[in-house]
Design a protein around this nucleic acid. Structure first.
Length: 175
DNA sequence: TATCGCATCTAGT
DNA sequence: ACTAGATGCGATA
């Protein structure tokens, strides 16, 4: 596993991406702590940078990057894969609905519990952006996002990019 | 293995 | 419209 940094127009700045021979294993909106080996595979760096750049510039709706799922397993992975398969560009799903779709929480009957658990799984998503956790919203509003204050801005930015939200006055992305 | 912190929801003022 | 409480999972050390 090696790391590379990709410039983005996001409010959070550049992303840190970890790649393996299988694909992208990890992505972060915030800078990783040092100590991880940088990626030296130039064609791979160019491919990842180009795909993410095109997506965030509105030139494509598909990232088209292979995902290495090995960092997640069990129910966590099942929910992430459900989200990845069933929620396309420009669509959103609520925490509760995703819980139901994934089929992981059929034993859980308490209202809201499955939804909360999904929220915690999204917070622990190793590959945000590739697995579109920003398309998962609360039943009554936009919901939350990791990374504190900047995190929620990233979520709004991405939803605006995909046409889910109306551009605000400070919108600095494409369109 | 023990502890911590919730990316929610629903109901009750 | 707004506030508070229920409640158990996953992550971290």
């Amino acid at each position: 596993m090696s790391w590379l940094t990709v410039p983005t127009p996001l409010p959070s700045g550049p992303m840190e991406i970890a790649v393996t021979p299988l694909g992208v294993a990890s992505a972060g909106y915030v800078r990783r702590e040092g100590g991880t080996p940088p990626c030296t595979d130039e064609p791979k760096i160019r491919a990842v940078t180009e795909r993410i750049g095109a997506y965030l510039a509105g030139r494509t709706r598909e990232l088209g990057l292979p995902i290495d799922w090995s960092l997640s397993s069990g129910p966590h992975r099942a929910v992430l894969e459900t989200l990845w398969r069933e929620v396309p560009y420009g669509r959103t799903i609520t925490y509760g609905e995703l819980a139901a779709r994934s089929g992981v929480f059929e034993d859980i009957t308490e209202p809201g519990l499955a939804a909360r658990t999904v929220g915690q799984m999204m917070a622990a998503n190793p590959v945000p952006l590739l697995v579109p956790c920003h398309r998962v919203v609360a039943a009554d509003g936009i919901g939350g996002f990791g990374g504190g204050r900047v995190g929620i801005e990233v979520k709004r930015w991405l939803l605006t990019l995909e046409g889910v939200l109306e551009p605000t006055l400070d919108w600095d992305g494409p369109l």
